[in-house]
Design a protein around this nucleic acid. Structure first.
Lengths: 334, 334
DNA sequence: TATTTATATGTAAACGTTTACATATAAGTA
DNA sequence: TACTTATATGTAAACGTTTACATATAAATA
């Protein structure tokens, strides 16, 4: 293990040239004769030379690694983001370093470490809720930062977001057009920015359409399957039953399905269900779930491209909020 | 952005000491007077000094980053591994760098790059299939390597594995005890080592129990939901119907569910289904899926602990194959 | 007091690259 | 030819740490 590794100096010695020439020959573009270059390349290959990326990064002040900070990574949404970010960054010659900040390791701590370590050239941060400390930390701008966040209050960084508010209104509108008047709503976590906006969209569109919101039909959820199930159980204890349940995300919608099945309700005949996110399984539930498709691939791609443009100095514009599209996917659940 | 960052030299100047003393004071353990230490710490804090981890790693020849190479990372199985690896490594003071090797970027290429870049101190590689080139590359041992793999033919690296073979036999045995005699099997990808062993376990246990294997009931699958659905469709075209379908993974079992529902079969009354993996949704399908639980958390934890022990030189034993436990989770699908 | 030992600090090299600058050679131009 | 320009190569500094070694001072011992 870790056998004495050969370096540029060794190659230089064998090729009878200076290390500068070796460096130039290996890096490609500079002025080196064909003969010297091929001689050096040959030796490098024979010795199975691999450049010390650490040394290179150190002197260049650039690692070509971007950091991706996540609240938690066992969620499907996050793993799709990881994939998308990694794909995109790799195409531009970057590696992706995933840092999860859940557990006792706080988000702010992770951001601070990564900001200053010089290990990453830029940072993509997935934010589920935002407070002043986080905003301040993200804005301290040693390196470029892009946030993927529902909260779009501008800081010293770019934001990629989903139009939660409008999409939520679209949902209500769609339900209304289908003839539903009695809509229950299962909310997400109270601090979650996406959840807040989805809830607001729900309320506002109901008001606009003059749909009365029954307070007993607004349930607290936590974006988990179990949360959705429990909320639905609670909902069904009311005397009056809604015609349709709008779950603020698909995971909770799956919880709805379970609760409804256990309580003997048929979807969509007895009660309809509609979700938000379009996770992988939604299409394969029985019945397939009607939901809002959040395009995580685009989300990750936008974030990465923006970040790399910032890193390379190709984008020096003011910090922006970029909104990724959503789409109502109509299936069979309502 | 990237404002001139302060370094140890700057602190030394202000504190009127040498950079060596600053380094010692900041790194904690060495011989420094209380007064000098606190003076240096105070100045460092005032200047908001953050050590250049890149420089440190460079001189120490150690980055405290472990690399995690995945075939593809949009899969739930992988995201659980990521989480587990990241959690475990963080507790030991390591960061995790995720590298996906799907698409045009080959696995061997990723391994080679990471092996020699000095960016990672060790490598965890998720292997779905193994060939000689991969084995050779992994064995070239510049840094310690741990493979999470179904294929346990030993190379110059540790292997963490799941007992696919035995678990698969357990499944057949369980079905047999429940009175099932006619078992169909949906296979995984032909090169996938896990799939190969699961299939072998199925066949061997059937033989042992003298269950006749109907060749028309052995279907090719690809571990995807759609693959499972198509295989089931095909299966149902036979005149004779099996009593139960053993899907080599849960994703395909979900596909079974869909096909059976569409074709008007009730689970488990008309046909039973059993899976392998116990993914998140399995518990919440209707009916809940009976399956083999693969403990991904333990898998990732074992791999990480082994790797870090190797990196630190705390483990110089011969390379091992460590098998993580599985468990038959009995639910309602058969 | 004289000598040894422990403690605190400084000096300078080392890690493996890249790159600004200097220099030597070759090619082009007047 | 003599001068300019382009090209190829070398020299050495730089990046920010850590650390082996040397040294100076303080404390302990004989």
């Amino acid at each position: 293990m870790l056998s004495k590794s050969i370096n540029i100096k060794e190659i230089a010695k064998r090729a009878n040239v200076s290390i500068a020439t070796v460096s130039r020959a290996l890096s490609g573009n500079n002025n080196v004769t064909k003969e010297t270059r091929s001689k050096i390349l040959k030796i490098a290959h024979e010795l199975n030379y691999k450049p010390n990326l650490l040394a290179r990064s150190f002197v260049k002040g650039k690692t070509n690694i971007i950091g991706l900070i996540l609240p938690d990574i066992s969620d499907e949404f996050f793993s799709e983001i990881i994939k998308s970010v990694d794909d995109t960054s790799y195409q531009d010659g970057y590696f992706t370093m995933v840092i999860s900040s859940h557990g006792n390791r706080s988000l702010v701590e992770s951001i601070n470490t990564m900001m200053n370590s010089r290990i990453v050239d830029g940072l993509i941060v997935l934010l589920s809720s935002v407070n002043d400390e986080i905003k301040r930390t993200l804005s301290s701008h040693r390196i470029p930062v892009v946030a993927i966040s529902g909260d779009t209050s501008i800081g010293n960084y770019d934001i990629i977001t989903v139009d939660n508010y409008k999409s939520s209104r679209d949902v209500v509108n769609y339900l209304f057009k289908k003839g539903y008047k009695k809509i229950a709503y299962i909310n997400g976590p109270s601090e979650n920015s996406d959840a807040i906006l989805r809830h607001k969209g729900f309320c506002d569109e109901c008001k606009k359409l003059k749909l009365t919101i029954n307070p007993a039909w607004i349930l607290n959820g936590d974006f988990t399957l179990l949360g959705g199930e429990e909320a639905t159980n609670q909902l069904l204890q009311n005397k009056e039953r809604p015609e349709v349940i709008f779950a603020a995300n698909d995971m909770m919608a799956v919880g709805c399905y379970n609760s409804l099945a256990k309580n003997g309700y048929k979807i969509p005949d007895d009660i309809g269900v509609i979700g938000f996110d379009d996770i992988l399984i939604s299409e394969y539930l029985t019945p397939p779930l009607t939901t809002i498709k959040v395009d995580t691939e685009t989300l990750g791609k936008f974030a990465t491209e923006k970040l790399i443009d910032r890193i390379n100095g190709n984008d020096t514009s003011k910090h922006q909020v970029i909104t990724a599209n959503t789409e109502l996917v109509i299936r069979k659940s309502c």
